[in-house]
Design a protein around this nucleic acid. Structure first.
Length: 795
DNA sequence: GAGCACTGC
């Protein structure tokens, strides 16, 4: 029986969702979906949030001001403030005006027009839910060092909070006296800028652009002047007079290596802390130390901290940032709650646990497609590329046989490995008439991007999660149930533009059994990088470092030992000069170690070329789809493949690519090499060369490309491989009667088919990557001599 | 002959 439907703020049922015929039409088929009270389900999370706010001690100076926005406000147009498709809510015409501003002179747009546009934008800003909290937020930070701000999606927290604060009296730049390392007094300036951290580059740059416009400025090129800037890898803009700076989390950590007291800043705003990346966990720990520790490094000036999140455990965070020994009248933390803007989404569950969620999902998508009226696209969450490809094939087969009265289907895959253009295609609105877009996505669509036009979400309830096993030093990737927060986030994707529906391919009971939050990344990863960063930022005892969630002590100890073996830490566990250098490369610690070894053995430039390929975010060598392609590609690649393995194959590839001066895209296409990957590799190569030049590891920057291809002599190859062995000596295996066995632990290991050494038998191998899937596979493999291993491990 | 989500310096 369909239960009574009502929305959270309005007891009147939504007309489209409440028609009994419609719900019974869903119930009356094999899908057996039960119509659930979606409004109350989503509002359940709101209730939960308020309930958690209630945990706060009454004596702690907490301002709890949950507010319910009137229905009207909730039904105005909303957009994700951090999405790549970020738009100014309700003001497309203003956006257009701003974009069309004609430059006055050469670079600067007309200031009067900018001011006028900002004035217009202010009208829109005043309608944002957070606007009514302006005074509360300012008041909170005048009286506290820390503010926890729980702002839902669409509340405007990311764009407005820094603007509320930059003109506050505590935000002024000051000149103070501090003690230098050798106990001398020196004058430094402290404060004046607010940093806002974002987990992704697109978020940092698009938010900066938007806030600049709201402030009557704009983001230009090179050095300009203006109140807003940003810094992400490979790109930054820090104008004169900058008051607000959007940065990625990794970038702020990098800044902390040079400026551990964050003297540039009056405040740090941490956005999206609920995503809980390793970097944001480290930032939270450092900020807590800065707030609670002595402030002499900042000349006594406190750093203000705002922690922002859409969904967060405020109780836990409040405890984390409170001083444990707080006096009864000490008020360290304030809490604000801002209602977001989101249309209601009705949730439908399976009645019975599904045996085959893939088939159920297929059925649900078809049912939605054939019964729901247009417009209204479908977004389906699956676990991975393979599932998505299969689903696409099956849906398209069925679509070909649909009757003419049913809309046509446009099936679009969406996952990270797709090219930028292919991803863009999934965002585009369908142009064809009488057609419904069906986007099959991984959890890239959960946070990173917004797909427009979606009214229906189908959620399989699973996602692939990386899990690290410290004892084995191995990672595995498994499909696991998602968290409640994730499930709600996925459902919310149906309510961006209008009231939506979400079909969960699992039972309501399964939903209640889900964990509230995802396990934070720091508990699922190798902590070598995290430990090195802590050490480099001056943390002597990493086991004492305040973390919201501390990894297993064993995992920390293994990381410490690993860093000692690599020479980053001495016997006493103190950071060495090598370790300090390693922490400053934008690379995993092991590759940092290789760079240093390379400088000593005079193969630095070649090593940089190799590491640039290895750390580019997509695979360099694409996989051919058909067998004919396979043969053609293999012939085209012969000049690049080096019989000594994958490392030297990458080197050959960079040598040939950079020697190519005619058409690099064409060069890549002929060899089925990813152009995106090679472009990124070239950026990394430039950055690493620059850093090594500054560290004086190379005397001068190498001449620009193209350079003639140099043959890699056997002697040179040996030097390069031995250089990598200095960091990867423990990642080796020797050939026995029954295949390869690792030198550490004597586990059986097989060379992965993606390696040029696949199926080859050599005396010993070194592998940079190790995954456990069907077998224990070694990836990125090189042929070495067994006696080199002993040599490498002795040093 | 494998099959892998996402992000960041």
């Amino acid at each position: 029986m369909p239960p009574k439907l009502h929305t959270k703020f309005d007891d009147k049922p939504e007309p489209s969702a409440s028609k009994p015929e419609k719900s019974s039409s869903i119930q009356g088929n094999s899908l057996k979906h039960v119509l659930e009270d979606g409004g109350s389900d989503l509002s359940h999370t709101h209730v939960a949030k308020r309930a958690r706010l209630g945990i706060l001690k009454p004596e702690s100076h907490t301002k709890v001001t949950p507010s319910i926005q009137p229905q009207k406000a909730r039904h105005s147009q909303t957009k994700d403030t951090t999405s790549t498709q970020a738009q100014i809510p309700g003001a497309p015409e203003i956006k257009k005006k701003v974009q069309n501003l004609k430059p006055n002179g050469v670079h600067q747009p007309n200031p009067q027009l900018l001011q006028k546009a900002a004035k217009e934008l202010e009208k829109v800003r005043k309608q944002l839910p957070i606007w009514s909290k302006k005074a509360d937020i300012r008041w909170a930070l005048r009286n506290n060092d820390v503010l926890l701000l729980n702002g839902e999606t669409g509340s405007g927290k990311s764009t407005q909070t820094p603007q509320f604060l930059y003109s506050e009296p505590w935000c002024k730049k000051r000149t103070v006296k501090v003690k230098s390392k050798d106990e001398r007094d020196e004058e430094v300036s402290v404060g004046g800028v607010i940093a806002v951290t974002e987990p992704r580059r697109v978020a940092a740059t698009t938010l900066a652009r938007r806030v600049a416009r709201e402030m009557g400025s704009y983001i230009g090129k090179g050095t300009g002047s203006g109140p807003v800037g940003y810094a992400v890898r490979f790109d930054s803009y820090t104008p004169k007079g900058m008051k607000i700076k959007f940065v990625t989390e990794g970038m702020l950590l990098q800044e902390m290596l040079h400026d551990p007291h964050l003297r540039q800043y009056s405040a740090v705003i941490v956005d999206e802390i609920h995503e809980r990346s390793v970097d944001v966990d480290l930032i939270a720990g450092f900020l807590r130390k800065l707030i609670h520790g002595d402030k002499r490094g900042r000349g006594g000036i406190p750093l203000k901290v705002v922690i922002m999140s859409a969904t967060l455990d405020l109780g836990g965070l409040e405890a984390f940032f409170s001083k444990p020994e707080a006096l009864s009248n000490y008020k360290p933390v304030a809490v604000e709650y801002v209602e977001g803007r989101q249309y209601d989404v009705n949730i439908f569950y399976e009645v019975k646990p599904s045996q085959d969620y893939f088939q159920n999902m297929l059925q649900t998508i078809l049912k939605l497609h054939t019964t729901e009226r247009l417009p209204g696209d479908i977004l389906a969450f699956l676990t991975g590329q393979e599932e998505i490809d299969t689903m696409q094939t099956q849906l398209e087969q069925i679509a070909a046989n649909l009757v003419k009265t049913v809309p046509r289907m446009k099936v679009m895959p969406l996952y990270g490995a797709l090219s930028g253009q292919a991803q863009q295609d999934a965002f585009e609105k369908v142009k064809e008439p009488f057609t419904r877009k069906i986007v099959l996505a991984t959890n890239i669509a959960e946070t990173s991007v917004t797909v427009s036009g979606v009214h229906f979400v189908v959620d399989c309830g699973k996602s692939k999660v990386k899990q690290y096993r410290p004892q084995l030093g191995m990672e595995s990737l498994l499909a696991k149930p998602i968290s409640k927060v994730s499930a709600i986030q996925r459902a919310g994707r149906a309510g961006r533009e209008t009231t939506g529906k979400c079909f969960r391919i699992y039972t309501e009971e399964d939903f209640t059994k889900l964990e509230m939050d995802e396990l934070p990344e720091i508990l699922r990863s190798d902590v070598v990088e995290a430990v090195l960063k802590m050490k480099a930022c001056g943390v002597d005892n990493v086991l004492d470092f305040p973390l919201m969630d501390s990894p297993d002590i064993k995992a920390m100890e293994i990381a410490l030992v690993q860093l000692h073996i690599m020479g980053a830490l001495d016997e006493a566990g103190n950071l060495t000069g090598t370790g300090d250098k390693m922490a400053r490369y934008p690379l995993p610690a092991a590759y940092g170690r290789v760079i240093i070894a390379a400088a000593e053995s005079d193969c630095l430039l070649d090593t940089i070329d190799i590491i640039s390929c290895l750390t580019s975010d997509t695979e360099v060598f694409l996989q051919p789809k058909t067998e004919e392609d396979q043969e053609a590609i293999e012939t085209a690649r012969t000049a690049l493949e080096n019989s000594r393995g994958d490392i030297l194959t990458y080197l050959e590839t960079v040598h040939h690519y950079t020697a190519e001066n005619a058409d690099r895209n064409d060069w890549c296409q002929k060899r089925l090499i990813s152009t995106r990957s090679m472009k990124m590799a070239m950026s990394i190569r430039r950055q690493l060369r620059q850093i090594c030049f500054h560290q004086k590891l190379i005397a001068e920057l190498p001449p620009p490309d193209p350079q003639p291809v140099e043959e890699i002599s056997p002697e040179r190859a040996e030097i390069i491989l031995k250089t990598f062995l200095k960091a990867f000596g423990t990642r080796t295996a020797v050939l026995g009667a029954s295949g390869y066995h690792t030198t550490q632990g004597h586990h059986e290991i097989t060379i992965h088919p993606s390696s040029v050494l696949y199926g080859k038998k050599v005396e010993a191998i070194m592998f940079l990557d190790n995954v456990y899937t069907a077998k224990n596979y070694a990836k990125k493999v090189s042929a070495i001599q067994a006696n080199w291993i002993v040599e490498a491990l002795e040093i």
